[in-house]
């Protein structure tokens, strides 16, 4: 009887204790996740500032790809640790994955059929319009659809080297 009373008295604990442990476990898990909370600089340079304001003191200019340990986040700013230095970075410049490298494959894709598509587009689109695939609005756009690839080549021919852009930046903004 005494044991029955003990069992009955401790019965709610059978339900409460798992939830307490579950709560503590979740807390520990989220702390573990926080410990792994690394963000990477995506821009060529990002300012590490003394406080969450563009008017605050510049501590360091961080390079692209630098991994930062997140200490705290606000709506637009992230407090990070970089080489044992604490500072704030604009949230817009950070991402959980390392930045995608500029890759020559990206700029000359093997399956670029732009020219092929250009030759085909007109007849294909006309056929589609006949079959009712295209709305009136699209048909209107289609009248002007043959893109000007010669002009596009001219646009693409103007390239600015990164060093040149930094020089331009320094000359004008001088920060």
């Amino acid at each position: 009887m005494k044991n029955d009373q003990f069992f009955m008295a401790s019965f709610p604990a059978f339900f409460i204790v798992p939830f307490i442990i579950l709560f503590l476990g979740t807390m520990l898990l989220s702390q573990a996740a926080m410990a792994d909370n690394t963000l990477y600089v995506q821009s060529a340079k990002a300012k590490l500032l003394a406080s969450p304001s563009f008017a605050s003191k510049l501590l360091h200019n961080m390079e692209r790809g630098v991994a930062l340990h997140v200490v705290e986040t606000s709506e637009r700013w992230v407090k990070v640790k970089h080489n044992d230095q604490l500072g704030w970075v604009s949230k817009l410049l950070l991402s959980p994955s390392p930045p995608t490298k500029k890759n020559s494959i990206l700029f000359k894709p093997k399956n670029d059929v732009t020219q092929k598509a250009r030759r085909r587009a007109s007849s294909t689109a006309t056929a589609a319009a006949t079959r009712g695939f295209r709305s009136e609005r699209h048909s209107r756009a289609n009248d002007l659809e043959n893109g000007d690839y010669d002009a596009l080549e001219k646009v693409e021919s103007i390239t600015i080297e990164e060093a040149e852009a930094w020089k331009f930046h320094q000359e004008g903004i001088k920060q």
């Binding site: 990002a46 950070l94 890759n103 600015i160 040149e164 930094w166």
Partner: peptide, 14 residues
């Protein structure tokens, strides 16, 4: 030059 300078400070350098 203006555009490239801005892009260097943006998140899509790729």
């Amino acid at each position: 030059l203006i555009g490239k300078t801005l892009v260097l400070h943006s998140k899509r350098n790729e």
